[in-house]
């Protein structure tokens, strides 16, 4: 099967899932026990404002019509208007999206680069102190609550040592000209190294705490996959030929050991998207996760619906890209 045919098939299979997701997200607002308008407006409410909100949310219409209106607007990116800020929900999401993207991409980068380096070194120096400390690290790393880790990092690096900032994306008074919204990239565009350094310092702790769980998993998988590959016949042949051990590990083994690692990396995106909700809350990072948690606490349901649908949609889209990548790497997948 050609890659584009596989892509179309994969896309067609996703469509019913996407519609199902939209139904669940839509129904959320109707599953709230009690009257959503009362809950959103609180106790002191006049009949006029009540009717106005009902009208605005379309709650006075039959359910299927409400759904259709919501869905047809949602696919166009229109999730309605925030009850608290009176801004369109999509604008609220878009203004915070770059912060979340920057955080998760940097965290994924840390997890992949260090995960592979640590995992390979553990396998290369099997049953040495290096190996044992990597195993220990990966055991602890998968079980640590990242929101607590984040707090402990703040306490150590910010409160005690004073090296890194406690929260936010930039120091007070700094304004980077916005191009992409990714401050690291924008600072480079502006050619301002001190801004770049400041953004990086703010990013360090949140990105590291978010990366920890994925990093630990990647270390574990890389190590065991490398050990499997290193026991293969062709590795023994290479060693018997007198190839240097580093060359055996890095050129002969590494490439073949990467297939299970790539699979695990693909699975980390869901973890990171969930973890971002926690990390952003710990570090007051102005991203989508914090937008969601705040919206939940002030019962701003259009924002909750918008963010959840947006994130689920992004998650599905990312999964398709990951699947396509596998299909490209391993053509057998396309025929399954």
């Amino acid at each position: 099967m050609a890659l584009y045919k596989y892509f179309i098939k994969r896309l067609a299979l996703t469509l019913p899932t996407l519609i199902g997701v939209s139904i669940i997200v839509f129904l959320l607002i109707h599953m709230i026990p009690g009257d959503p308008v009362d809950i959103m407006l609180g106790d002191r409410v006049t009949d006029a404002s009540r009717l106005a909100l009902e009208e605005r949310l379309g709650l006075n219409q039959p359910l299927h019509i409400q759904y259709w209106n919501w869905f047809s607007n949602a696919v166009k990116g229109d999730f309605g208007i925030s009850i608290r800020s009176n801004q369109p929900v999509i604008e609220e999401i878009m203004s915070r999206l770059p912060a979340t993207v920057e955080l998760t991409v940097v965290a994924l980068f840390i997890a992949v680069v260090f995960g592979i380096i640590f995992g390979v070194s553990a396998a290369r120096y099997r049953n040495t102190t290096i190996d044992y400390s990597m195993i220990g690290f990966s055991l602890l790393g998968v079980s640590i609550p990242i929101f607590w880790l984040g707090m402990m990092l703040i306490f150590f690096f910010s409160v005690i040592l004073g090296w890194l900032p406690v929260s936010g994306r930039l120091a007070m008074g700094i304004a980077i000209p916005q191009v992409t919204g990714l401050y690291l990239v924008d600072a480079l565009f502006a050619g301002n190294i001190s801004y770049f350094w400041d953004a990086l310092k703010h990013l360090a702790l949140p990105a590291f705490s978010l990366a920890t769980v994925s990093l630990a998993l990647i270390v574990r998988v890389t190590r065991s996959s490398m050990l499997d590959v290193l026991s293969e016949d062709y590795i023994r042949t290479a060693r018997a030929k007198g190839v240097r051990e580093n060359k055996v590990v890095f050129t002969h083994a590494l490439k073949n050991a990467m297939i299970p690692v790539v699979t695990v990396i693909g699975l980390q995106l869901a973890k990171l998207m969930g973890g971002a909700i926690l990390t952003e809350t710990v570090f007051s990072w102005p991203g989508i996760g914090r937008l969601l948690v705040t919206a939940i606490s002030v019962r701003d349901y259009p924002v909750v619906q918008g963010v959840v649908f947006f994130v689920a949609f992004a998650f599905i889209a990312i999964n398709i890209v990951v699947d396509l990548f596998y299909a490209y790497l391993d053509p057998r997948i396309r025929y399954e």
């Binding site: 899932t17 199902g20 669940i24 969930g274 909700i277 939940i296 909750v304 689920a312 998650f315």
Partner: peptide
């Protein structure tokens, strides 16, 4: 498939928020 299309924490979070 639909339930698995949500990141797990996000699913638990919105359901907990909805249930109260």
């Amino acid at each position: 498939d639909i339930l698995l299309a949500f990141p797990p924490l996000l699913l638990a979070l919105v359901i907990a928020a909805t249930l109260g």
